[in-house]
Amino acid sequence: MTKILLVDDHPAICFALKVLLEKNPDFTVTTSSGENLLALLHRELPSLLILDLELKNADGLDLLPRIKHHFPALKVLVYTNHPAGIYALRTLKAGASGFINKSLALDRVEPVCQLLLDGYHCFPEETLTHVVEAAEVKNDPQTLLASFSDREIAVLNYLRQGKSNKEVAERLALSNKTISTYKARMMKKSGVEQFEHLFDLITPPEPDA
């Protein structure tokens, strides 16, 4: 039996969605208004959480990263009245596996739940397009370098030359902490896991033999 926790503070929606989902004999649904949600998740240990973003006592988008921190394997379907154009990408980045607007027919929810449980992600097409475009930007060295400030490029160059954080800080009249901040910013912009991977962006090409 697959346990689903439905978090929405509208009783009518909870009732209707619970009845619809439990037509699937593999699903058992518990409903909640969202109070003490983390404690409830620890107690219920569901395979899927259906989460509204607008709750009386909490904000779903604020809760989502904390939920994923405590339950990284939990599938989360955001089910909300909030517009996808503003919120879908944000929920994806916060750890959600899917996003459905409440304006869609209720019978659209159960197939999406099944897809999420099978390991798929379900978001509006434009959301995934944004993700692909962002990945393409990160994979293009020239575009990525253009996103770095002049000072960040200077720091990157000095570090590529083998200088320490302290030496770079002295050359640029900055503190060690500031150099570390610049490095963190560049890693965040590029998405690399090791700073040294950025050196290839500014390494001059070898002359032709």
Rank of each mutant, 00 (worst) to 15 (best):
V155E: 03
V155G: 03
V155M: 02
L156W: 07
L156I: 11
N157A: 14
Y158C: 12
Y158R: 07
L159C: 03
R160S: 14
R160G: 15
R160Q: 14
Q161A: 15
Q161S: 13
G162P: 05
K163W: 14
K163Y: 15
K163D: 11
K163I: 11
S164F: 11
S164L: 09
N165E: 10
N165Y: 10
N165V: 15
K166P: 00
K166Y: 12
E167G: 00
E167C: 01
E167R: 05
E167K: 08
V168F: 04
A169Q: 01
E170H: 02
E170V: 08
E170M: 07
R171H: 11
R171E: 15
R171M: 11
R171S: 14
R171K: 13
L172G: 01
L172Q: 01
A173N: 10
A173I: 08
A173M: 05
A173L: 12
L174H: 01
S175A: 08
N176T: 07
N176W: 07
N176H: 08
K177T: 15
K177V: 15
K177L: 15
K177W: 13
K177F: 14
T178Q: 08
T178A: 13
T178W: 03
I179Q: 02
S180G: 13
S180E: 14
S180A: 06
S180L: 11
T181F: 09
T181H: 03
T181P: 00
Y182A: 03
Y182W: 02
K183W: 04
K183I: 14
A184F: 05
A184R: 10
A184Q: 08
R185M: 07
R185A: 07
R185S: 11
R185V: 06
M186N: 02
M186V: 05
M186C: 05
M186E: 01
M186L: 06
M187R: 02
M187H: 00
M187Y: 00
M187A: 04
K188V: 06
K189V: 04
K189Q: 04
K189L: 10
K189C: 01
K189W: 00
S190C: 03
S190F: 04
S190N: 02
S190T: 06
G191D: 06
G191V: 09
V192Y: 01
V192G: 00
V192E: 00
V192A: 02
E193G: 09
E193A: 08
E193P: 00
Q194F: 12
F195E: 01
E196M: 05
E196A: 14
H197C: 08
H197I: 05
H197F: 12
H197S: 14
H197R: 14
H197E: 15
L198K: 04
L198H: 05
L198T: 06
L198Y: 07
F199Q: 05
F199W: 12
D200H: 06
D200R: 12
D200N: 06
D200Y: 09
D200T: 13
L201I: 10
I202W: 06
I202G: 06
I202Y: 03
I202R: 04
I202D: 05
T203M: 02
T203A: 13
T203E: 12
P204E: 12
P205I: 10
P205T: 07
P205K: 12
P205W: 12
P205S: 11
E206L: 13
E206V: 15
E206A: 13
E206K: 14
